[in-house]
Amino acid sequence: MTDWRSYFLAIALLVLGAQSVWAEGVEEYRVKSALVLNFARFTDWPAGALGGEDTPFNVCVMGEAHLAKDFEFLEGKHIGARPVVVIVDASLEQSIACQVIFVAGADREKLPRLFSAIYGRPILTIGEMSTFTDSGGMVNLVNVNGRLKFIVDLQNLHASKMNMSARLLKLAYAVKSG
């Protein structure tokens, strides 16, 4: 085989292979949605905060909601006996009716207004930007070398009279206690 032929073949293989190279991991927000579901299962809400045994459990996606379309997969799953209802791109007014809020993306500017609306309320807040817990958030997801880790801020969690199981906290990348 002459040189140019092998180069040509190499390029052809490169082009064919290009697409599959990226199919390697699992889509980030798919995993994040599964993590959020798990966090909710290991979180203790104050008595009565979730309503009756079969009251819908609202998982709201805010921030750059278009990124986290995969959260729709959670619709119909259960937290205990409560069916999950997913609200994508929830408004500030809707936010107080959520049991979990996932803030997608890294748009910091609207965060203070969101926490003005919900701080201290029994809503599990999960985000993915570096200052999420500084802003009042409870759990922040970080990507460490292609794998997802989570940081818990206990002060913000306790401010809403919520808690997390020791088993969950043991898996945390970091736990901030204020």
Partner: peptide, 19 residues
């Protein structure tokens, strides 16, 4: 994914196509 435990989820390699 739904059935997976937390340890496995945290060990999964993720890609960011949605970004």
């Amino acid at each position: 994914i739904e059935g997976m435990d937390l340890e496995s989820l945290l060990n999964m390699e993720v890609t960011s196509v949605s970004k």
